[in-house]
Amino acid sequence: MDIFLQQILNGLVLGSIYALIALGYTMVYGIMGLINFAHGEVVMFGAMVTISIIGMLTGMGLSLPGPVVVLLALMLAIPVCMLMGFAIERIAYRPLRNAPRLAPLITAIGLSIVLQNVAILIWGRNYIPFPPLLPHDPINVLGASITDLQVFIVISAIAIMAGLLFMVEKTKLGRAMRATSQNPAVAGLMGVNVNTIISATFVLGAGLGAVAGVMVAANYDQAHSHMGFLIGLKAFTAAVLGGIGNLGGAVVGGILLGVIESLGAGYIGDLTGGFLGSHYQDIFAFAVLILVLVFRPSGLLGERVAERA
């Protein structure tokens, strides 16, 4: 029983991170109908830049408490990633807005390769440890354990997502975003600056990605230049699972995928009589992705997209 609970808790932590990243995919998809293939690399940069800034801050000999240093670094890393998000849209998507769908897909893949290799140039190919500045004290929950860092990750992810939903529903920017996603041409006629809104969407998504990147790094105590691809793909799966283009769906899909993955990894050995082990963990995301797209392409909460895509 405690194994089950443990996997659920692990899944929640992982899932809330997926959800944050999935929001980036789903917002861009909602507005432009495109999958931002380079989003995973923004997440990776969020983690790497934060670690580097932490290094600089501690190198300056400031005697600040650990969490404050991490937070400070994150606050500096977020604008860097936002700038990246802005640039990605400007370089890979905007010039090809009326081109066939394949063209922006290829530029986005190209950009992702470039970003990954820039990261290798800066940080090398090895794993970089996340500085041990955050408390990892385990909390016992009915026989399972969760660290206070993980609790903090889940709570802040939920808070950020709530803030985003509030922004999209209640603010002027949010209204303009919703209008643009419904019909960009009409939104433009109504005085919405569509280009600004699209840029804002990429920037916002990149900001969430940066936070998520740091969460991943802090949770696993490490980061590396190749981490963007897999985590991006999984978050995309989460977005599809929830119903791409739907913000609530991204949150539900993210958390659900995290839990499925954890439970899957925990039980796959028993399920297959020991034939497949936990190193098949990554298969679940792909299997879920394929199953959802084949059987319910609209996702759990979304509109039907297969025909549109």
Binding site: L233, Y280, F286, L289, I290, L293, V294
Partner: peptide, 23 residues
């Protein structure tokens, strides 16, 4: 299974398929 999918979706599912084979 991907007969109904188009464009980016097809790309992502085929990508997933490739990764599954590799795993």
């Amino acid at each position: 299974p991907v007969l109904r999918l188009r464009g980016d979706y097809l790309a992502i599912v085929t990508l997933g398929f490739g990764e599954i084979i590799r795993i």
